[in-house]
Every structure is written in structure tokens, then in C-alpha cells.
Design a protein around this nucleic acid. Structure first.
Lengths: 203, 203, 203, 203
DNA sequence: TATGAATGAGTTTTCATTCAT
DNA sequence: TATGAATGAAAACTCATTCAT
């Protein structure tokens, strides 16, 4: 407790300021076209200050990634267990996913677009957060199979990937399209499609 | 016709050599990390020669994009009309999509990963080829609705996007994952899911 | 006198702490590669504190230089007059020189290596301390000539430079070599050579 | 033969132009204060061109070092065997040393001053060229001992170091002093001192 | 048409120094 | 006096593009 001083707080806040500025600038220009000095200016600090909080330009990207993923996975792990119906779990999961994307558009652009061209990020993503993401989906699907609402013979791992693919693809589309009609409003149609696809009645 | 001399042919072939080299190099290093001289070396020509066939580095990317999209759309426009069942049209469409991705892995990496971080490309893609892609899907869906095999009340435009989202997302996953179990083999499960989702029986 | 308060003493001591830290750090990394913050850390003070005692990084180097030279020249000026034989004066001088180098290895590295690349330092060194150093040697040589133990026709100024050149060169070698067998033990062989070279018997 | 084309020659000459420019600029400003763009300007080429011939700034320094040392050692190895009297061999060696220093003042400044603060260079120098330099001196001294003109009991290795120390020290002094009265003219006095010091008559 | 050496604009990163606390 | 976070100037190095051959 006593270790979290006022100075620590100031430090944490400034770090987040720079991180949000980086997300904004990377979202606007793309990671490679963005200059560190753009980030600094957007954060209202001197160029050198960025390097007091982050090792280098690359570390900014990594940190955005970790920040966003942790927020999402933590939230999902907290909320979902409270929901009984597996179908509603999946719906809630999609809402969380799309909600975060909508709330943090800059982060989302970076995440959906900029991070994808880095093998390193993608490998790390695949083995850590994505694995966790898919695991959460899989648990819900298997719960649904156990509960008799999803067809038993479908491969929960494959269908978890399907659902991720759909949600991720739509997120990318939304992020890349200017018009920006609500992404959240797509949750119900998408889930309807998916749930129809896996529904027990259609064995 | 008579203007398409042997020299023109040589020129066209060398252009394609460079383009394939660019796809390979961009796929390996990423667009921004790839050097024009890497492309030149991979193509077996001098650095300057690249500029005799392409305006600049950016033009290489644009050209890869157009080349790949044209091949795909042309093929789809040719083959699909010959298929009667709208469900088989969709399946064939997915096969074409995944087949191209598998056959031209370098192109696919560039297309799925590198092109995505360019707003300019994505805007252009959205308004031209993607529009055409979605239009093809939409026509098949509407044909299915007319034929009474797909639910009438579903929004053909939205569901075309769904299917694109799923296919595109899976293509990205396949491209980014090392393991590379067949992508084509996923066509049937994916289509099963989608067709179940839109099937008339599940109104 | 009464102005030399306890506070002054604290100040003087802290100044020396920083100076020794600077010598150590410069010796280890070289002046240009050494950071002021390295010096501060080695001295156990904050970066800013260094600037309360020294104008800038350069002033640290200048101050090391003056400190070392003053100690040496003062000592030589005190001890040598008490020695009668000019040959023993030269021997004692060499002992003082090598003894200081051995005792203050960090200072010596800075002095022998780091200071040499600065024209400014070397000019200042040449016109002040080196001049004094050579003057001391010259006086001993001339005393030897008067006493009839050194050849009269040799140029005392030139031979003072010779001896400095030998001693300085050996000091540099010792400083740069890892092995570090005693430098002091070289005093006698060196002096034997030099004294043979200038001995009256070989006119 | 046929491999040394006109292009190779142009390349070699341009490399040397840049190397000489680097020596000049490093000599004037010191290695750390000199900018690569200063070197480029002095050589009459663009900044980037420097990097077509040298890996980095450091490589410029290394290359100056190798160039100078190779020229000296080669020349010494060629000329000395033709001289019979070991005393004249030493004298000729000193003339070559001082002659090179005088002829290539920029190189000499870099060599005597700039290179000395680099542990890396000094280690390399000590184990390669300096070792060869000392070996040449040692052979001459031992030849003198065999011929009965130098005292047998003196340690040839130690005295080779002495002579190097004297010559190197004088070279450094000459290089650092503006006045620049001839360095070559010091060869005879220095050698007189040294030869007197090692002369057989003074056992 | 093909070449590849030369160019020089552009960007990340470091670190001496300052100054509010 | 002491601190150390913030500053921003400065420089090495890269690489897309040009152009003389």
C-alpha cells in the first residue's frame, strides 16, 4: 500500500497518456509512418520523455497490445462465469469484444491493423491472449454441448475459431470503414447466425 | 493485336518476375522492412530496373493487390454462373477464395497482412474489389432466397459481409499460423455452419 | 582561516568524492562514452548535484587533470631539494612519477589516455605543468653537468624531454596493459639506461 | 590480374580519398567530436557514400589504423635486412618511424592521440602490430649483442620497449606541439642516447 | 533497356543540462 | 542544498530514388 505513492500515480498516468497518444498516432498514420516525435507532441511531452517510459518505438506497440488484451481478457474472465446460459455467455462475450473496440477506436485500429503485420506480435498473440480468448469461447461451447443446446458432434476448438474469425473480421471491417454504424448492433445478428449454425435442432 | 510483339511479351514477363519477387520479399519481411534492393535481388535484376517497371515501392504493392484481385474476381465471375444451386455457388466461391490463398501463399500474406495497414489500400479495396466480392456473394444469397433455400427475411448485404468476414478471418489465421494444415479442407465445415445459419428451415 | 568552516570541509570532501567517481568512470568507459549520470551514480549523488560542484562534464576532466598534476608537482618540488646527488634526484623523480601512476590507476588512465585526445588539455598541459615537470628535470640534469657527472655538451632541455618521453611512454604502456607487473620496478632499469646515456664517461 | 579492373581501381581510390579525409577530420576535431558528415564533406562525397565504403564511423578509425601500420611494418621489413650494422638498423628504423609521422601528420595525430583512448584498438595494436614492431627492434638488439656492440646482459625485450617508448613518446609530443620543428632531426640525438645506453663499453 | 554507385532526406535515440520541488 | 524528471538538440545511419554509363 505505502509503496503506491503519489509519484507512482503520476508516473502511471503519464505513461498512459503517452500510450493513448501512441495509439492515436499509430491509428492515424500507421506504425511505420508515425514518428516518435508525433507521439510525443500528441502526448504533450518532449521527444526524450517518451524514452523515459518506453524502451523504444517498438515497446510502445507492444505495450498497447498488452494493455488492450489484458483489459479484455480480465473483463471476460470476471463477467462470464456469472452467466448461466452458454448462448448468453457467447453473446456477452461478443458484446464485450465489440464494446471494447467501439470504446477504444484508436486502440482497435492499432490492434486490428497495425499489429497484424508483425510476425512477432502475432506469434505472441497466438500463444498467449488468443489462446486464452479461444479457450473462453471453447468452454462456453462445451458447456452448451453438455447442456444439450449445441450439437455434441461439433468440434468445439474449430467452432471457437470460427466465432473468433467472424468477430475479428467484423471488427476489422468496422475499424476500416469510415461510416461507423454501430458495431455493437451487429452482435445479435452475428450471434443469431452462429447459434443457428450450432443449434442442437439442426444435427 | 499486332502491337503485342515479342518484346511486349518479354516486358510483361519481366514485370511479373519482379512482382512475384516483391510478393515474396514483402511476405517475408513485411512491406516496410523490405528493401527495394531485396526485391531487385530476388528478381535477379538491378535496383534501377525495378523503376523501369514500377513507379516506386508503393506501386509494387498496389500492383500485387490489383493482380491478385483481378485473378480472383475474374475467375469467380466466370465459374459461378455455371452453378445452379446457390448453396453450391457459395461453396465454390469459398473454394476459389481458399484455393487462391493456398496456391499463392506469398501473395496471400501480402494481401492478408501487409495491405491491411494501409488505409489507402483498404479504401480502394472496399470500394472496388471488395464491393464486387460482396456483390457476388449477395447475388448468390438472394438467388437462394428466391429459390426458397435461404430465409427471406435475412439481410443479404449483411450476410454477405458475414461470410466474407469468416472466410477472410480464416485466411488470415491460416496465413499467420506456421502449422498450415489445409485451408481448403475448412471449406465444408465453414459452409455447413453458414448454410445452417441461413437455412430456410430455421426461420 | 576562520572561513574554512565545517561546511566548507563537507563541500570539499563531496567535491573530491565526485571527482574520484569521475576518474573511475572515465577510466572504465572513456570520457566520451561515460555518462554524467554514471559519474553521479558512482559518487552516490543525484545527476543534478554534479552540476553544483562542476560547471559541466568537461570541467570534471579539467579538474581531474589539475588535481593530479598539482599533487605530483608539489610533491616533487618538496622532496627533490633534499637530495644531493643529481642522479638520485632523477631516480627519485621517476619513482614519484611511477608511484603516483600505480597508486592512482584510475587517475592515471584518464591522464595517460583520455586527456591526450584533447588539444585544449594538451596545450594547457604543455605550457603549465609539463613545462614545470621538464624544468625540474632540467635543473637536475644541469646540476649533474655542473657536478661533472653528466656530459656538459648535451642539451639539458632536449634530454629532459627524452626522459619525460621514456617515463610517460612506459606509464602509458603500463596503464594500457592488463598484466600490470610492477611499474615501480622499472625505475632502476630505465634510469640505468638514461644515466649510461648521459654519463660523463662517454663524452 | 584480370580481376583488378578499372572499376576496382576507382573504388580503391575513392576509398582512400575518404580514408584520408577521415584522418584529416579526426585529426582536427578528435574522433568523437568529428561528424561523419564532416568526413563526407571533406572527401567531397555525400554522407551515404561513406557507408558504401565503410561499415560505420568506427570502421573508419580501424581502417586508418590498419592502413598506417601496414605501410610502416612492410617498409621496415623490406629495408632493414639490407643494413648490416645493428646500430644503423635501429637508426634507420627510427628514421622510418619519424619519417612516416612527419609525412602523414593527420594519420599520425589520429594514431598517436585518437586511437589511444580505445581499449579495443590498443589491445589489437598490442597483440599484432606493436608485437611486430617490438620484434623488429628486438632482432636488431640481439644482432648487436651477437656482434658484440651491445651489452650481452641487457634484456632485449625490455630495451626494445624502451626504444619504442622513447620514439612513441617523442612522436606524440611532436604531434601535439604546434611549433613542429623537425621530428626527423631528433633521430640522431635520440639514437646517440640509446646507443650510449646499451653500448658494450659500459658494462 | 539495364545497371548500380551515388545521393541526401528523414528518423530514432541518446544524454548533457536545467529547474521546479 | 539536493533531487531527478523533463527537455530537445544533435548525429549516425538507412534506403528509396536518380542518372551517368
Amino acid at each position: 500500500m505505502s509503496t503506491d505513492t503519489a509519484e507512482d500515480k503520476v508516473r502511471r498516468e503519464r505513461r498512459e497518456t503517452i500510450l493513448r497518444a501512441a495509439a492515436k498516432v499509430f491509428a492515424q498514420f500507421g506504425y511505420f509512418r508515425a514518428k516518435v516525435s508525433d507521439v510525443a507532441r500528441a502526448a504533450g511531452v518532449a521527444d526524450g520523455t517518451v524514452y523515459l517510459y518506453f524502451r523504444n518505438k517498438d515497446d510502445l506497440l507492444t505495450s498497447i497490445f498488452n494493455w488492450a488484451m489484458e483489459e479484455f481478457v480480465t473483463q471476460a474472465r470476471e463477467e462470464l462465469p456469472e452467466i448461466v446460459d452458454p448462448r448468453e455467455q457467447l453473446r456477452r462475450f461478443a458484446q464485450l469484444h465489440f464494446g471494447l473496440i467501439e470504446r477504444e477506436r484508436d486502440l482497435a485500429i492499432v490492434f486490428q491493423v497495425e499489429l497484424r503485420h508483425s510476425t512477432r506480435f502475432m506469434e505472441r498473440f497466438s500463444t498467449t491472449y488468443l489462446a486464452e480468448y479461444l479457450q473462453i469461447l471453447r468452454e462456453a461451447i462445451e458447456a452448451g454441448q453438455t447442456a444439450g443446446v449445441f450439437r455434441k458432434q461439433l468440434n468445439s476448438k474449430v467452432h471457437a475459431k470460427f466465432l473468433f474469425g467472424i468477430l475479428d473480421g467484423m471488427a476489422t471491417n468496422w475499424v476500416l470503414s469510415r461510416k461507423s454504424n454501430s458495431l455493437s448492433s451487429m452482435v445479435d445478428p452475428v450471434l443469431e447466425l452462429f447459434l443457428n449454425g450450432v443449434n442442437e435442432r439442426h444435427a
